[in-house]
């Protein structure tokens, strides 16, 4: 674990070093490339701004991905289970998932105005497809014998869904959730640059207009850090919920 941390942090430390060296060597004027120390100062002096905007972004992603989860998981379980639903939806899913959510920003603004609604709608869409596709994939991967066991026991459809299809699909659903959270986080920052007047995306765009490159870099660091934390969080939850999988699959790392 210690080795993992040390190795994980090494590239970041090298990047920091390169940054500091570039500042020392005056590759760019300080107004464009502030020293690491100056950026650190942002977290002391402007912490309220950073925190408020980060909270706004995180809240949007939670709501948006929460909605995608609530829609995609039940829908995916059913599409995976019922062949006719698969035939009905397959082409549509393949078409709509190829559309980058960002390209829908203009439409979202036209229909939903400026504010939380268009950005949440876009996050919802960016999380929907990975979750849906992975859930379907999870249902398809169920061992056939297990379905036979349920049929032989004359289990009702609801019990089959709840006790067999859902738990069997959970590992795949969590893979989908990781991708969805990543996609949602990318989308929120972009959406905030255009469609909203708060959040980290808005903050860094605004910082550009006021020549606060320290605030821009601080914002980028926060975006990356939250992305890492969110990913680790989903991983932990997955490891806990799917602990029955231990020993069944090859070690993940």
């Amino acid at each position: 674990m210690q080795l993992r941390r040390a190795l994980g942090l090494l590239p970041l430390a090298l990047l920091l070093l390169a940054w500091e060296l570039a500042v020392q060597a005056k590759v760019y004027p300080p107004v464009l490339l502030p020293a690491p120390g100056k950026v650190l100062l942002v977290f002391v002096e402007d912490w309220q701004t950073v925190l408020d905007n980060a909270a706004a972004s995180v809240a949007r992603v939670i709501v948006g991905i929460g909605l995608s989860f609530a829609v995609a998981v039940p829908l995916g379980l059913m599409i995976g289970r019922y062949r006719w639903l698969d035939l009905l939806t397959d082409w549509s899913i393949q078409i709509f998932r190829s559309v980058p959510p960002i390209s829908l920003i203009p439409l979202a603004i036209l229909f939903l105005g400026i504010g939380d609604k268009p950005s949440i709608a876009l996050i919802f869409l960016s999380g929907l497809w990975p979750l849906l596709i992975n859930t379907i994939f999870g249902v398809r991967g169920i061992e056939r014998t297990l379905i036979k066991v349920a049929r032989a026991a004359r289990a009702g459809e609801l019990l089959v869904m709840k006790d067999i299809i859902l738990p069997a699909s959970l590992p795949a659903i969590f893979t989908g959730l990781r991708l969805a959270v990543g996609a949602g986080w990318l989308t929120v920052v972009t959406a905030e640059m255009i469609a909203v007047k708060s959040g980290l995306g808005y903050m860094i765009l605004n910082a550009q207009l006021t020549f606060r490159s320290d605030l821009i870099i601080a914002g980028i660091i926060v975006i990356g850090a939250i992305g890492l934390v969110a990913d680790q969080l989903v991983r932990r939850i997955r490891a806990h919920v799917c602990r029955w999988q231990e020993g069944l699959t090859a070690a993940q790392e």
Binding site: V149, A150, R154, A155, L159, D163, W244, Q245
Partner: peptide, 22 residues
């Protein structure tokens, strides 16, 4: 079943209870 057909996410107890639950 030949390959036992146990649900890997259920404990032994839950597996044994499944047919009754059904």
């Amino acid at each position: 079943f030949q390959d036992h057909g146990l649900f890997p996410w259920m404990t032994v107890q839950k597996n044994v209870e499944f047919n009754m639950k059904a």
